[in-house]
Nucleic acid binder design. Structure first.
Length: 426
RNA sequence: GGAGAGGUGGCAGAGUGGUCGAAUGCGCCGCACUCGAAAUGCGGUUUACCGGCAACGGUAACGUGGGUUCGAAUCCCACCCUCUCCGCCA
C-alpha cells in the first residue's frame, strides 16, 4: 500500500517509478481525489465538533436544572444531525475510493533494480557450481521419476492435473529435503522455526498483498478462508497490527508448509512433471527488520537460500529481476535458478524479495524506535529457502545415473535412513 | 456444537448514560534530593487522521460492525476472540 502523503509530496518521483514498471502516471488523479477526501473529512469534523460542543452545553444545562435551555439546544443539534450522515457517507466513499485505487498499485522498484520489460531483461549476477558432464544423455525428471515413485497418474486420478502422488524412496527423499532445509535455516541462519496455519483469513492475505488483486490465484474454502499460496502469508501476517519493540528486530521466521496455488494464469504451462503443482511444499524465510537494515537483510536471505543449493551441490545462478518481471509487492527481487541437465535449462527454485514497508503499511505493523516516541513501519522480506518440489526435481536430474537410478546427495544421507540411491522399481 | 463468564492504555485493573481518552498501581522517561546508586518526592508517558511553518487546535478509537440517544467505554443487536464446564473427536 502506498503512502498518499509520499505521493502528495513527491508526485514526480512516484510517477517516474511507476513508469519504470510500465504504468501510466497516477499521482495527479490520486492527489485530486485525496484533496476532495480531506475537504470532506474536515467538513465532517467541523460538524462533529459543533455537535459535541452543544451536547456538553446540554449536559451543563441539565446539571443546573435548566430544562428549558437544554431543550432549546437539543432542537438546534437535531438540525445539525440531519445533515451529518450525508457528509459522513461522502467522506467514507471518497476514502474507500482512494484506498481502492492505492491498493492495486504495485510497489515501486528500488533505485538499483534494472529497467526492463520482462524476464529477458533480468540481470545475471552470479553463477555457482560446475555443471556435471554425463557419459550418457541425461533425461528429464518426468521421464526418470515415475519408476522411482513419482506417480503422476494416481495424483491426477485423485485430484486432477497438477497433483502428484509420491511413493516410497521418492516420498522419503522429498521429506529429507524439507527437513534438511529447515535444519539449515534454523540452526545455521538463525531463523525461528514455526508451524503456522495454512488456512488464513482475508486480513492475512490482504496484508501480504495477495488480495484484492490476486484472489483468483489462490484457493478459497466455502467458509471464507484462504489456502495459503506461500507461508510468507502466515509468517509475515503473524505480526499484523502489532507495535513491536525495536529490540525484537530483526525477527527471522521460517516454516516448512504446504502451499496451494490455482495456477489460473498458467494454463498449459509446465503441465508435464513436478515443476508447477497446485499443492507443493516450501521452506519459507521471512524477515521483519528496521528500514535501515532491509538491504543487508535481503543479501543475507539470498545467501541463506544459496546455501541449500551449495550443500546439495546443485549448480545455480542468481538473477536480479528487472522492473518488468518483479512481483506486485516487491521493490527488489533476486531469483535463484537451478540447473536442470535433463531440460538443459535453468529453472527458478527460489525468489527472495524485499517489500520495504509496502506490506507493513497494509498490515499496520510498526515498531517503536528505542528511546523515542515515534513509531515507524517495519520492512518485510520473504524468500524461498527453498521450494522443496523443485529441489527434488533438481536432485533427480543432477544425480541421475544411466540405469535410471538416482544417487542420494551426501547432505541428505543423515535423513535417508541408510538409503543411498533410489532404484527403479522394475 | 451447547451453557456460562469475559474482552478497557506497554502490563495489571477501576469505571455501568454527560467536562472519561479514561481512576489507581506497575513499568518507562525527565527533574529534585544524593559523591553516586537505592529509596523518596514532583512532573510526564496511547494511536491514527484533519488543519497549522510552529505553538497548538480539532476528530476518531475502550474486541469488530451496526443501532438507540442531544450525548455511549457505559444501553440494545449481530459477529469475532479468550476462559470455564458439557458434548464430540484426530
Amino acid at each position: 500500500m502506498h503512502d498518499i502523503r509520499f505521493i502528495r509530496e513527491n508526485p514526480e518521483d512516484f510517477d517516474a517509478a511507476l513508469a519504470r514498471r510500465g504504468l501510466e502516471p497516477l499521482a495527479a488523479s490520486l492527489i485530486a481525489l485525496d484533496e476532495e477526501r480531506r475537504a470532506a473529512v474536515t467538513e465532517v469534523q467541523v460538524a462533529q465538533s459543533r455537535r459535541n460542543e452543544a451536547s456538553k452545553l446540554i449536559g451543563a444545562a441539565m446539571a443546573k436544572g435548566d430544562r428549558e435551555e437544554a431543550e432549546a439546544i437539543k432542537a438546534e443539534v437535531a438540525a445539525l444531525k440531519d445533515a451529518m450522515p450525508a457528509l459522513e457517507a461522502r467522506a467514507d466513499a471518497l476514502a474507500a475510493d482512494l484506498k481502492g485505487r492505492l491498493e492495486i498499485i504495485p510497489n515501486l522498484p528500488g533505485a538499483d533494480v534494472p529497467d526492463g520489460a520482462g524476464e529477458e531483461d533480468n540481470r545475471v549476477e552470479s553463477e555457482w557450481g560446475t555443471k556435471r558432464t554425463f557419459d550418457f544423455t541425461p533425461r528429464e525428471h518426468a521421464d526418470i521419476a515415475p519408476a522411482l515413485g513419482m506417480d503422476f497418474e494416481t495424483g491426477a486420478r485423485l485430484s486432477g492435473a497438477r497433483f502428484t502422488f509420491l511413493r516410497g524412496g521418492m516420498a522419503r527423499l522429498h521429506r529429507a529435503l524439507g527437513q534438511f532445509m529447515l535444519d539449515v535455516q534454523t540452526r545455521e541462519h538463525g531463523y525461528a522455526e514455526c508451524n503456522p496455519p495454512v488456512l488464513v483469513g482475508d486480513d492475512a492475505m490482504y496484508g501480504t498483498d495477495k488480495l484484492p488483486k490476486f484472489a483468483e490465484d489462490s484457493f478459497c474454502t466455502t467458509n471464507g478462508r484462504w489456502l495459503i499460496p506461500t507461508s510468507e502469508v502466515s509468517l509475515t501476517a503473524s505480526v499484523m497490527g502489532e507495535l513491536l519493540d525495536e529490540a525484537a528486530l530483526p525477527m527471522r521466521l521460517t516454516a516448512l508448509t504446504l502451499c496451494f496455488r490455482s495456477e489460473a494464469g498458467a494454463a498449459g504451462k509446465d503441465t508435464r512433471g513436478f515443476i508447477r503443482q497446485h499443492q507443493f511444499e516450501k521452506c519459507e524465510l521471512v524477515s521483519i527488520v528496521r528500514p535501515e537494515d532491509s538491504e543487508a537483510e535481503h543479501q543475507r536471505m539470498v545467501r541463506a537460500a544459496e546455501t541449500i543449493l551449495e550443500r546439495l551441490n546443485l549448480p545455480y545462478r542468481k538473477l536480479l529481476l528487472c522492473t518488468g518481471d518483479m512481483g506486485f509487492g516487491a521493490r527488489k527481487t533476486y531469483d535463484l535458478e537451478v540447473w536442470l541437465p535433463g531440460q538443459g535449462a535453468f529453472r527458478e527454485i527460489s525468489s527472495c524479495s524485499n517489500t520495504g514497508d509496502f506490506q507493513a503499511r497494509r498490515m499496520n505493523t510498526r515498531y517503536r524506535v528505542a528511546g523515542e516516541k515515534k513509531t515507524e513501519f517495519v520492512h518485510t522480506l520473504n524468500g524461498s529457502g527453498l521450494a522443496v518440489g523443485r529441489t527434488l526435481v533438481a536432485v533427480i536430474e543432477n544425480y541421475q545415473n544411466a540405469d535410471g537410478s538416482v544417487t542420494v546427495p551426501d547432505a541428505l544421507l543423515p535423513y535417508m535412513g541408510g538409503v543411498t540411491r533410489l532404484e527403479p522399481l522394475a
